[in-house]
Design a protein around this nucleic acid. Structure first.
Length: 293
DNA sequence: AATGAGCGG
């Protein structure tokens, strides 16, 4: 740092007086501060003017080296990166001017999917959009027969006729049939027991067996599901018991259903328990008609 | 007298 005396204040303006006056600041009398550089060597000069304690006007030159110091801390690679051309949002920035940018670029993530299914998906989405435009909701498209707005896959009237989905990748799906139309089963894992050629037992385990459903009416008001189970399980495996309960009052509505795994057991239960006295009432036990939607 | 809830894409 260099300090050069430039001039001495006039006798009129004594430093001591100035300080004691209302702290008046005479810096406005001084030339403005100047900053030169830093140059290519990282040399930066700051020139400022001040009054010293004796009231002399002095020029203070401060010389610092920035770049050199900074460079010493940077790795070679980091220094090299500074010369890289800017790209993206920083393309209009000067080389070396800014090291980081906040990216506003949109990144779309792709869902990994087997190739070839994309077009179908897009098309299906398009169909849905078209339906929405017409004002209809697009819930309920049967995956078995492809019919829209009529039934869920689990209630498809053709579910027993439809070809079962083929096995895993080693067996390509058939190109015709309603199953293929909906794209169901394609590249989808199918458990061995359900693959084509697997042994089929008489009962289809994927379906809830509403077939062996028994309706029980004239139950006393305090009969609950555990009671029904106790009463009916003596005839065979029971898959479900249900007692209709009023949603508001929580009171039993006096009837319920019992589902049997085996039809014969259901039949025997009906024969034995219909007309049977339970609590203080005579039970009615008969086949239940399949429930509506 | 009386025929269930809820689950989806």
């Amino acid at each position: 740092m260099a300090i050069d005396k430039i001039s001495t204040l006039s006798s009129k303006l004594r430093w001591g007086e100035l300080e004691e006056d209302d702290g008046e600041d005479l810096d406005f009398l001084l030339p403005p501060r100047q900053v030169i550089g830093p140059d290519e060597n990282g040399i930066k000069k700051v020139i400022e003017y001040k009054f010293n304690d004796d009231g002399d006007k002095v020029k203070i030159t401060t010389t610092t080296r920035i770049r050199k110091l900074a460079k010493a801390r940077l790795s070679k690679r980091a220094v090299e990166r500074r010369s890289w051309a800017k790209f993206g949002d920083a393309v209009h920035e000067d080389v070396g001017s800014r090291l980081t940018m906040v990216s506003t670029e949109e990144i779309l993530l792709e869902r990994p999917r087997a190739p070839g299914t994309k077009a179908e998906e897009t098309k299906a989405a398009g169909d849905s959009m078209a339906q929405l435009a017409k004002g209809g909701a697009v819930l309920m498209v049967c995956r078995t027969c492809g019919k829209k707005g009529d039934h869920w896959t689990s209630r498809c009237p053709y579910k027993d006729l439809a070809p079962q989905p083929e096995g895993f990748i080693d067996k390509p799906p058939t190109s015709e049939g309603p199953g293929a139309a909906s794209g169901a089963g394609k590249n989808t894992y199918v458990p061995p027991g359900l693959r084509a050629g697997a042994e089929r037992t008489g009962t289809d385990m994927r379906r809830r067996n509403d077939e062996n459903s028994v309706r029980v009416t004239n139950l006393s008001e305090d009969t609950r599901e555990p009671d029904l189970l106790e009463l009916f399980r003596t005839f065979g495996a029971v898959s479900r018991v249900y007692v209709a309960v009023d949603q508001k009052t929580g009171l039993s509505r006096g009837f319920g259903f019992v589902n049997f795994v085996n039809k014969e057991d259901a039949e025997r239960a009906i024969n034995k328990l219909n007309g049977y006295g339970y609590d203080n009432l005579i039970l009615r036990v008969e086949w239940a008609t399949p429930r509506s939607n």
